[in-house]
Amino acid sequence: MALINTQIKPFAANAFKDGAFITVSADDIKDKWAVFYFYPADFTFVCPTELGDLADHHEELQRLGVEVFSVSTDTHFTHKAWHGSSDTIGKIKYAMIGDPTQEISKNFEVLRENEGLADRGTFLVDPDGVIQFTEVTAEGIGRNAAELVRKVKAAQYVRSHPGEVCPAKWEEGEETLAPSLDLVGKI
């Protein structure tokens, strides 16, 4: 995607978190890892399964120093209503950003202009505000938060170990690669 290795754009938006309305901005993630988890709409079908799965992995992401933000073009008021009416959504402890102006969805290039909804897009932003990975799936394809955690660990490992890269299916503690001329054609 064209957004890989680019700086996130400034934004400010209202969100629902921990029973309160808050304002979230790009300044809130300076010097932090952050996941932006876009989804089409509240009160739908696949979305609550994804957000619930993400909630189940939220503590692990927090231990990794990652701030988590779900984003849809709904309002923060709608997020509060959904949080209060669904057991699955009620377990969410991360910020649920409302993007009714569609600014954030446009910034991350996941807005379906003709519908006013966001695609299912996941973005990992490093402490410098640079997008390290992105995943976008079609409407009916739900994401896997365990795989998100694996990718976060790989991105953090690569950042803290210059000159090393993580191969396919890499899990924490497994061997990495040190790209060199000697590896060309040997793998």
Rank of each mutant, 00 (worst) to 15 (best):
V152M: 04
A81P: 00
V184S: 11
H83P: 00
V24Y: 04
I97A: 05
N144Y: 08
H79N: 02
R112W: 08
A12G: 14
Q102T: 15
K80W: 00
E67A: 13
L64D: 00
T101S: 15
S86Q: 08
S180R: 02
E164S: 07
A26K: 13
F36E: 07
A95I: 02
K169H: 15
D18F: 00
K151N: 10
F45Q: 06
N114C: 10
A178S: 15
R150L: 06
E171G: 13
F69R: 00
T6G: 10
K91E: 03
A15Y: 06
L64V: 08
P40V: 06
K151W: 10
P48F: 01
V66M: 02
N107I: 12
A146R: 13
V184T: 09
T23R: 09
L181Y: 13
G173Y: 08
A155T: 04
I131R: 03
R63M: 15
A13S: 15
H57A: 13
M1G: 15
G140Y: 14
Y94D: 00
A146W: 07
I104Y: 02
F43S: 04
D56A: 09
P179G: 03
L124S: 05
S105Q: 12
G173C: 10
E67C: 09
F21N: 00
G65M: 00
V130S: 11
L124Q: 06
F36H: 11
E50Y: 02
Q7Y: 13
S72V: 11
L117G: 09
R120A: 07
A145Y: 01
K186Y: 06
A34G: 08
A26T: 14
E174F: 12
P10F: 09
E59R: 02
K32I: 14
G142R: 05
H161W: 03
E135Y: 14
G90Q: 02
M96P: 01
E115R: 15
I141K: 05
K186R: 07
A168P: 14
E175V: 10
K32H: 14
V110Y: 07
Q62R: 14
D53R: 08
K151A: 12
E113N: 09
Y157S: 05
H57F: 08
E115D: 14
A146V: 11
S70Y: 02
S70K: 05
A55H: 01
K153Y: 06
I141N: 07
G163E: 09
Y39D: 04
V24C: 04
F69C: 10
S160M: 08
Y39I: 11
G116W: 08
G140M: 15
I131S: 01
L54Y: 01
L3R: 14
I141V: 14
R112E: 14
A55R: 00
I4F: 11
K30M: 11
D99M: 13
T75W: 00
